[in-house]
């Protein structure tokens, strides 16, 4: 039997670890996404080329393989050991940051050229234009695909259990071994992930409304019951960045 003790002793700390891994790797991914994404719109071909290499490299990488490489190969190669959780965060942040860079690049490319020209005419520097004109206009476009990526990232955090990070999947495995009952344990675990994904989606919807109202667009209204419940903002959109094509739209 899975007891209450098992839940408080294993699952609760596991939930906390999952939250930490999600938050840290999401933060890293956002930084990577914006840096690589804007570099990929650079006018200098060498900058575009190098940032493009980063994108292609990490988009083709399996996060699980990267995690194992960081945890098991790096110490042998460089005599330097990662704290497993940081290895997990690094692997997730670098790969999902690569997917996110495609979202950033695409949204920046969708800002009308006239906006950039107006910025030039007003004498803004390139960085000022990016910060004050292009990113604020592109941001609402980025939120829905970022939401999809965030949920993918949340799902990806389960991988850290394989490198001995005691997240909730790791806890579930311990409880299964301890209680010899798998059905309730894994069902609970799946439901927990689903609830987390749901909460994240609600949060991102608020962010989207806020972002759109800030640039004077009407806030989106989910009309049907299903569109309120569904976890994807726009099916298909943004998942393209997750996979490979990236030439969405």
């Amino acid at each position: 039997m899975m007891t209450e003790g098992m839940f408080t002793n294993y699952f609760l700390p596991g939930i906390w670890i999952t939250i930490q891994v999600t938050v840290f790797s999401a933060l890293l991914a956002v930084v990577v996404a914006f840096v690589i994404g804007t570099l990929r719109t650079s006018r200098l071909w060498i900058v575009r080329f190098l940032s493009g290499i980063y994108f292609e490299l990490f988009r083709g990488t399996s996060s699980l393989v990267l995690m194992f490489w960081l945890v098991f190969a790096v110490p042998l190669m460089f005599r330097w050991q990662f704290v497993p959780m940081y290895a997990g965060v690094l692997a997730l942040g670098l790969t999902y940051g690569a997917y996110g860079s495609e979202v950033v690049r695409g949204a920046l490319a969708a800002v009308p050229a006239a906006q950039r020209e107006a910025g030039v005419a007003l004498g803004f520097t390139k960085f000022q234009r990016l910060r004050r004109i292009e990113i604020p206009q592109a941001w609402p476009e980025m939120v829905p695909p970022f939401n999809n990526l965030l949920i993918e990232l949340l799902k990806g955090t389960a991988l850290v259990s394989t490198i001995m990070v005691a997240d909730m999947t790791y806890a579930a495995n311990l409880v299964r071994i301890g209680s010899n009952e798998s059905a309730p344990v894994y069902t609970l675990l799946l439901v927990l992930y689903f609830v987390f994904a749901f909460v994240l989606t609600r949060g991102m919807r608020v962010l989207e409304r806020h972002a759109k109202s800030r640039i004077g667009q009407a806030p989106p209204r989910g009309d049907s019951l299903w569109s309120r419940l569904t976890l994807r903002s726009n099916a298909g959109e943004g998942t393209g960045a997750l996979t490979a094509g990236g030439t969405s739209r």
Partner: peptide, 26 residues
């Protein structure tokens, strides 16, 4: 169908594999 697909898509593949591997044979 909507609920099932939504649930499967928004939960980790790894956990689903554990579920299939440990629970289904029961």
């Amino acid at each position: 169908v909507n609920i099932i697909t939504e649930f499967i898509r928004n939960t980790p593949l790894l956990v689903q594999l554990f579920f299939l591997y440990y629970v289904v044979p029961e």
